[in-house]
Design a protein around this nucleic acid. Structure first.
Length: 500
RNA sequence: GAGCCCGUAGCUCAGUCGGUAGAGCACCGGACUUUUAAUCCGGGUGUCCUGGGUUCGAAUCCCAGCGGGCUCACCA
């Protein structure tokens, strides 16, 4: 094992000579190995975190503690050296004195490189300048860093490098750490809030024989043993509704969806959604759940329901405004689609709305909304009552079957969620699928497929239910003031490229 | 997919009209026993994204490509 390691290193060291700093680190590594030391071994195990010691100094003052983390700065003053140790909780200063540790250990400490991962044992004290520190009694090297870290002051700014080498971004950019910690807290809070309300969390397939539950182009793959094509899921919806059929009345799933579509500051090919379904409820109930969830999450992770996004104040405090899609269109464009019933397509085109060739009346309304209205919806608002032909899984309105009991909350001009009273009439659902199949045959490759297996489930009886989907990434963008979805995804997709 | 912008040292960035490649941090050598962006003295460590072209001469101008960002388009 050790021989193997040594061998590999010597092979690599030739190419590493490209960079003086890497050469120095390789040389130190090889010297340690020759001295019989393993520079990648677990040694001193931390008993405390930096934050614990700093925040409860009075409790630990004079006590011996063990800490472990990454060496991030060194200030050498002859026989005394200060260093900054960063662990997952924060930063703490180390103090090493020649007189205290002896010549050999002192030289070894100075020989460490910034970025090395070390363990230390020492006594907590406060320096003359008032900084809580640990006077090191012993230390060990637990991972030699062979590459230099980005600069401590400016951090890693290059956006491409921050995405490609997120570990460096997380190491040196505190704001990036903050975003992903907050993302974790958002997901945890959603889970807890739903659990408190009696929802159970489930996991449904990512690999679908028939991609369904959304209008989107799927990624295709292939299962060798079954000898059949499979699709990465574009939404978990149809499986979660099968669980309603099965008698789970409140279910939710948090997980990835995959859509084989464009990439932008608001779109990543794989993204995380929450979908929740509640039996014996309708879209009104789900709107309340939506505004409650999002505002409670904000309160929990940010301590407020009034947030700042890119310099704009957004008030997430419920209740949110509700407006039907037709009302919203009339409010912002003056177009009255109620009065224009039967002439939707020509009216939309006259207003300068771009439409696909085979657009349906509902598409004309939806496109008008998306192209003319969306951008105005900054403060949270539920847009409701979407046309039935663009809502193939939603229940029709009792008072007007051309529209559905559906809602989409908009915040900052973004569609942040989507929900409706779930269509549980298998006869109507079949008609909707047949309409989608016609669209697909007419060239719409985002139209739904016929899903006989799902229809069969509905035929056994699905309770009336409300459903809700929230885009977690966009929600996290809002809550963390992040301008790009890639800022809230740890490893966003990039074209492959050799290391810079 | 289209338009605009960007790519120089490990990192952050300068680089004028086309004339020997620069700074800060980091790094290397030296001094320094309470500093904290430590300080002081000395040292520039480079595939100027890649490949062509123009030119006596290209980081710089032109063409193509690669990668990235933003805005559109598609979408959540």
């Amino acid at each position: 094992m050790d021989e193997q390691t040594t061998q590999d290193l010597s092979v690599q060291s030739d190419e590493a000579l490209l960079n003086d700093q890497m050469a120095v680190r390789r040389a130190k590594l090889e010297r340690l190995i020759q001295e019989g030391r393993n520079p990648y071994e677990l040694g001193i195990v931390p008993t405390h975190t930096a934050r614990q010691v700093v925040e409860a100094f009075d409790r630990w003052n004079g006590e011996q503690v063990a800490l472990a983390g990454r060496l991030r700065a060194m200030r050498i003053h002859g026989g005394a050296t200060f260093a900054d140790l960063h662990d997952s909780s924060g930063r703490i200063q180390l103090f090493v004195r020649l007189d205290a540790v002896g010549q050999q250990a002192y030289e070894a400490f100075k020989d460490l490189d910034l970025g090395d991962i070390i363990g230390v044992r020492g006594v907590v004290f406060r320096t003359k300048r008032g900084e809580v520190s640990v006077e090191v009694q012993e230390f060990d090297l637990q991972a030699k860093a062979l590459r230099p870290l980005p600069e401590k002051w400016h951090g890693l700014k290059d956006i491409e490098q921050r995405y490609r080498r997120r570990y460096l971004d997380l190491t040196v950019n505190p704001d990036s750490r903050r975003v992903f910690l907050l993302r974790s807290q958002v997901v945890a809070a959603i889970r807890r809030l739903l659990n408190e309300r009696g929802f159970i969390e489930v996991e449904t397939p990512m690999l679908h024989p028939i991609p369904g539950g959304a209008n989107a182009r799927p990624f295709e793959t292939y299962h060798n043993a079954l000898d059949m094509p499979l699709y990465m899921r574009i939404a978990p919806e149809l499986y979660l509704k099968r669980l309603l059929v099965g008698g789970f009345d409140k279910v939710f799933e948090i997980g990835k969806n995959f859509r084989n579509e464009g990439i932008s500051t608001k779109h990543n090919p794989e993204y995380t959604s929450l979908e929740a379904y509640q039996a014996f409820a309708d879209y009104e109930d789900m709107m309340v759940l939506t505004e409650t969830l999002i505002s409670e999450v904000a309160r929990e992770v940010l301590g407020t329901t009034v947030i700042q996004y890119q310099g704009r104040e957004i008030d997430l405090t419920p209740p949110w405004e509700r407006i039907s899609m037709l009302e919203a269109i009339e409010k912002y464009t003056g177009i009255d689609f109620e009065a224009a019933a039967g002439r939707e397509i020509e009216v939309a085109k006259a207003a300068g709305v771009r439409l696909p060739d085979n657009a349906t009346p509902g598409q004309a309304i939806l496109e008008t909304f998306e192209q003319k209205v969306e951008e105005h919806l900054i403060q949270p608002v539920f847009v409701t009552d979407h046309p039935v032909d663009v809502s193939p899984l939603a229940k029709r309105r009792k008072d007007n079957p051309r529209f559905t009991e559906r809602f989409e909350p908009y915040i900052n001009g973004w569609e942040i969620a989507n929900g409706f009273s779930e269509l549980n009439d298998p006869i109507d659902q079949r008609l909707r699928f047949e309409e989608q199949v016609r669209k697909r045959e007419a060239g719409d490759d985002e139209a739904h497929f016929m899903d006989e297996d799902f229809l069969e489930a509905l035929e056994y009886g699905m309770p009336p239910a409300g459903g809700l989907g929230i885009g977690i990434d966009r929600l996290v963008m809002l809550l963390t003031d992040s301008p790009s979805i890639r800022d809230v995804i740890l490893f966003p997709h990039m074209r492959p490229k050799g290391h810079a």
